[in-house]
Write a protein that binds this DNA or RNA. Structure first.
Lengths: 234, 234
DNA sequence: CGAAAGGCAATTGCATACACTTTTTGCCTT
DNA sequence: AAGGCAAAAAGTGTATGCAATTGCCTTTCG
């Protein structure tokens, strides 16, 4: 417990813990309501309780875990109402980002957005869900940045990360890929011609649809068989 | 350092620290950019470094302090751009709350909103800035709650608390009180007749005006003479 | 037989000690 | 005299130990 932990990649130990535990929550490996025992986690990751506590604190701030004084931490339980509330917020936030992007994006940002978007069309034809997911995230991040408002960006990214556990399976639905791309296309077109109202509406509708698509999977709670051993990976 | 700390009011030690340090930042007692030394804080509040670290972590999550690995914590420095971004976000968020409130408030909530609002008219005539400030906060909180969306509520309250240091002096401007009440009146009227678009616009404009009023005071950074001794109070 | 009270085990909260990183300071070299 | 390097000092990150709170189990009394 005192020797150097082997080949630690980046950041402080706490960062590792946050990623490690956060991943397991986001991927449903740790189930909502599950108790997160400090000592156990410390033993699992071969660190002391101190960084574990700090990691739990951060995860709590992120809304991934709930903490009650003297009663330990548990994986956050998200009610159906709260989930709906988050998706709703997400739709509004994305709408704001799209509106602002339509008004404020630089010529360079607009070009980059369009190029990336067109490039991703190929992935739709190949039905490359994994890769498309990556481009999808990129696409939305461009919108958030394009708003040129640091605080909006923060709120949006935060909300997105909270929703992550419930968005995993959205592209599994048949035909969702092509539909997603077309919705993106509407947004891009509106942004390119600087039509903020249209961009906002398109973005809002887009998220609303994702929300409905995800609702299916939210009904069944996001858990998995989960037998794999725990260790620090990403 | 080991004896019971006298008559601690509520919550854990960390909560006390968060309130204590947070207050001093929000009130400008601790200045932006000022270094927050763990050992010094621990000594000042007569606790060990452990709760101080946790408190700084939470304050960092709130955006009140900035933390860089191995380099300690400082009171968050808010640039003019970031401040503008926060006010802008606030305007958008309040607009959302007002829109939702117009659509979703129960009859009881609407009644309470109107009654409170009418009652506060008296404070305007008395030019009771302090009391009006209290009602003002109440009023806006009602809007946030009326949206019936937990997540929007959280985002809005969070943003408001971050803006707190820069809003203190807004009612010092002559005539601001009456103007504020009239703007509230427009919002209330719109909500009462369920006109979400009008409510949203009115709320947005209201915040925008507050933003401009506050900008004057943001130029001079929010510091005070600050000679009072430090200790845990609220 | 049930309920309440008290004690015991488990777990969290805080304190202290140690290790590692960053920064400062003073000396040496150019 | 100025710049750079090295060692020490300061400060953060982590580990460990102790105190305090919580929840459960047992025991006892109605």
């Amino acid at each position: 417990m005192s020797g150097k932990r082997s080949l630690i990649r980046s950041g402080t130990t706490v960062d590792q813990m946050v990623r490690a535990i956060g991943d397991r929550i986001v991927t449903g490996f740790l189930r909502p309501g599950e108790k997160l025992d400090e000592a156990s986690l410390a033993a699992r990751f071969d660190v002391s309780r101190t960084p574990v506590r700090e990691a739990l604190g951060r995860l709590s701030a992120m809304g991934l875990v709930e903490r009650r004084p003297n009663r330990g931490a548990t994986v956050a339980v998200v009610t159906q109402e709260h989930l709906a509330s988050m998706f709703e917020s997400m739709a509004e936030l994305e709408a704001i980002c799209a509106r602002f992007s339509a008004e404020r994006m630089t010529a360079g940002e607009r070009r980059a957005l369009e190029i990336e978007h067109q490039a991703s069309a190929r992935l739709v034809q190949l039905a490359a869900e994994e890769d498309y997911e990556y481009f999808n995230t990129e696409f939305h991040t461009r919108l958030y940045r394009g708003a040129h408002s640091k605080h909006i960006y923060e709120l949006t990214v935060m909300t997105r990360s909270r929703l992550a556990p419930f968005r995993r399976a959205q592209f599994m639905l048949p035909g969702r890929l092509a539909k997603s791309w077309q919705e993106h296309d509407v947004i891009v077109t509106a942004i390119m011609r600087g039509d903020s109202a249209a961009a906002g509406k398109a973005a809002k509708d887009h998220v609303s649809i994702v929300s409905e698509a995800s609702a299916v999977f939210a009904a069944v709670d996001p858990r998995k068989p989960a037998t794999e051993a725990i260790g620090m990976s990403s």
